Amino acid sequence: MQGIVAGCAVFEVWQHNNLLRSADSAACLAQFSVDIGDRRVFAGVHYPTDNVASWILAMNLIPHIFKEPEPILKFAKFAITERSHVYKELQKRATATVALTKPIAALDAALSI
């Protein structure tokens, strides 16, 4: 959760101060935002569902943290769905793994905010 929220905070500053120079900059920041959690899963110190819980929490906290949450939510959703390797792998396995059905459904609901 810290990675996503930190990335969103940087994104907000970049956007507010017109510092976002390219889509590549946003993509790099999005990658950083999810890499912290993804790498903890790769290292074996977190379960993939820990990332899911963090993302759900972050998506629900963003409207309470940021003054203009809509672009921040859009950025966070992009980071999670387009840049996270853990998210992509969970999506592949969600239909075949019963234990993932509820967490993925809850994440999908949070991402539709």
Rank of each mutant, 00 (worst) to 15 (best):
P63I: 13
I72S: 00
K67F: 02
P69E: 12
F66V: 01
E68I: 09
F75K: 00
A99C: 03
E68T: 14
A53G: 07
V86I: 13
P71K: 14
L107S: 10
P103N: 07
F78Y: 14
L73F: 14
E82M: 06
V86P: 10
L61H: 15
T95I: 05
P69G: 09
A105T: 13
L90T: 13
T81R: 10
A79S: 07
P63C: 12
P69I: 10
V52E: 06
L90H: 12
E82A: 08
I72E: 00
I65S: 11
K102M: 09
T95N: 07
N60K: 15
A58F: 13
L107A: 09
K92L: 13
P103T: 07
I72M: 01
A58L: 11
K92Y: 07
E68Y: 13
A76P: 01
K102R: 13
I72Q: 02
I104A: 02
E89Q: 11
E68A: 10
K67V: 01
K102D: 12
L100T: 01
K92W: 04
F75T: 07
F75P: 00
I56C: 07
T95M: 04
A76E: 01
S54L: 01
I65V: 14
L90S: 12
H64M: 10
T101P: 01
E70K: 10
I56S: 02
H64V: 11
I62A: 09
T97K: 09
I80F: 06
S54Q: 08
L57A: 08
Y87M: 06
A105K: 10
I56P: 05
F78P: 00
A58H: 12
P69Y: 10
K74N: 10
A79F: 02
T81V: 09
A105D: 10
L61Q: 15
P63W: 15
V52C: 06
